[in-house]
Simulated scan of single mutants.
Amino acid sequence: MKSSTCSQCGKPISQEDKFCQHCGAPQKTAATAPKPVKTAEPRGISTASLVKWLLIAGVTGLVFGWIRYWIGYYVLIQGVIAGLLIPWMVKKAAPNQLEAISDIRFKMALLLFFSFMVAQAIGFGVAQPVFDPFNWVARVWNGDTTESVFGIFSTGGVVHQTFSEGLSGGFWAFLWFFDISFMFFLMLVSLPLTTNKKRS
């Protein structure tokens, strides 16, 4: 306990004393400053933030769709880049809402994935002379045209020749499904993990 002196008689008293124990004179006590209240990180996700994140995934999908139509498809490479790039940009766009994202990580990954896929289809349409997002996909599926595929299958020989001529139909759809499944997995694990901190 800190000590002080009486302002009236000069005898020693405690700083907490409102009156002198010796002469009874009232003492001036220093006002205690209120302790700062820690503000918890906002747990709710604002509509503006959600729209911003979906736009990030959408613009990325639009660019990837345009590249796929004109250049070709890089199996797994697209999935890796999109699956890591989109969550990274989302975290950069909202560093103060990482805990809120972690609470709905699976739903957020689904929303980002869906936004990317819709935008990629639009990218297919934008790249064509006449805008028709699903026309090109349908033609590749039906075998009316092919999509150039690169990446892990460019190994030379018969395999290289087969894939350099492009793919269509079921095998093409399988590779696409394999790629987007890998992309979704990377999105999910790259978003913020749920913390063990108790809510304040």
Rank of each mutant, 00 (worst) to 15 (best):
L111Q: 06
G72T: 01
I152W: 10
D179P: 09
A25Q: 11
R199S: 09
Q128D: 14
A119S: 15
F19P: 03
S164T: 06
Q97V: 01
K197S: 11
W172M: 10
S7W: 05
C9D: 04
K38R: 09
I56P: 11
T47V: 13
A57W: 04
V158M: 10
F150W: 02
F182T: 01
C23V: 09
W66Y: 06
F106I: 06
C6Q: 02
N142I: 00
W172R: 09
Q128V: 02
K2M: 00
L193M: 12
G169A: 08
I71M: 00
A138W: 09
A31K: 13
A100E: 05
F131L: 13
A93M: 08
V90I: 10
F124H: 14
R105E: 00
V137L: 15
F116T: 06
M117H: 09
S4Y: 04
Q27E: 07
L54I: 04
D144A: 11
W66M: 15
S49N: 14
W176T: 07
V189W: 12
G10N: 10
S164F: 02
F185K: 00
M1F: 10
P87N: 10
Q161E: 13
F185I: 11
V159I: 14
C23W: 03
I101S: 02
G58E: 05
F185L: 15
L55K: 05
R199N: 05
I104S: 06
V63G: 07
P192M: 11
S46Y: 04
Y69W: 10
A40H: 05
A100Q: 06
G123R: 06
T39I: 12
L111F: 12
K198L: 15
V130H: 13
S168E: 05
V189F: 13
A173W: 02
F177V: 10
Q78H: 14
E41P: 05
